[in-house]
């Protein structure tokens, strides 16, 4: 109680408490607005904020610094990387920068650094959109003409059951390859992709319509690199 008295707002509360007789209603109101923090959460918050300093601050000063010369610490603030810094893999064979960083990139390439500049193995980073990534979907590059004919037959027979994704899984090829081989009929496309959306679009109010338009415009801006 002595500590709270030093705060001006708390003093007001205490004054209210002493002057007004009906103070029994006030404390629950105030306590609702205040954030409660238990011992367990406080410890967790403190632990998460405990980020180690950048390695450039921790590295031992070189031997020359003992003789009186200054040490340069280069630790720029985090920012989006520039597109004019070409990745090692994109440098052509003739570029001198490739030769300069060849050894470094060959021997320590499987390790990257996270935001706290701690080394992290690349393969341990979680991948996103695995199903869409061409790397993780194994492809069967030896489909025969009969396979393609079969794929066409299945797709045209029942386009709902044999969707593009199902056929790609069944034949072990990419979705793009299925779409290159066979296209479902126009009536199927209208039934599945056009009519339900058109019906839903009819029910949109002005707010939703505007939100959808803005989302579309935002995507266009994204593709132009404006956001």
């Amino acid at each position: 109680m002595e500590a709270t008295l030093s705060r001006p707002a708390a003093r007001c509360c205490c004054l209210l408490k002493t002057t007004t007789p009906s103070t029994s209603r006030l404390p629950p109101l105030l306590s609702n607005q205040q954030q409660t923090r238990q011992k367990s959460t406080r410890a967790r918050h403190k632990a998460s904020l405990n980020i180690p300093p950048h390695p450039s601050f921790l590295s031992n000063p070189p031997a020359s610094s003992q003789t009186g010369s200054t040490t340069l610490i280069f630790n720029p603030p985090s920012s989006a990387p520039s597109v004019f810094q070409t990745p090692f893999k994109f440098l052509p064979k003739s570029d001198p920068r490739r030769r300069a960083t060849l050894a470094k990139n060959l021997f320590s390439s499987s390790v990257t650094t996270n935001f706290a500049s701690q080394p992290v193995d690349v393969s341990s980073l979680p991948t996103i959109f695995d199903d869409r990534s061409p790397a993780t979907t194994p492809k069967n590059h030896s489909l025969t003409k009969e396979d393609v004919e079969e794929m066409r037959r299945l797709r045209l027979a029942d386009p709902i059951k044999n969707s593009v994704l199902n056929l790609a899984r069944q034949f072990g090829c990419s979705v793009m390859f299925v779409m290159m081989c066979v296209q479902a009929g126009k009536e199927h496309r209208d039934k599945v992709h056009v009519e339900p959306h058109a019906a839903a679009r009819e029910r949109w109010g002005p707010k939703k319509r505007q939100a959808k338009e803005e989302r579309k415009r935002r995507m266009e801006m994204l593709m132009r690199g404006e956001i």
Partner: peptide, 18 residues
């Protein structure tokens, strides 16, 4: 993906950094 295929790099994979 087409660029990586042309230049004979491994196919690109998107990974969540943070």
């Amino acid at each position: 993906a087409m660029l990586c295929a042309r230049e004979e790099f491994e196919p690109p994979v998107a990974r969540l950094l943070s």
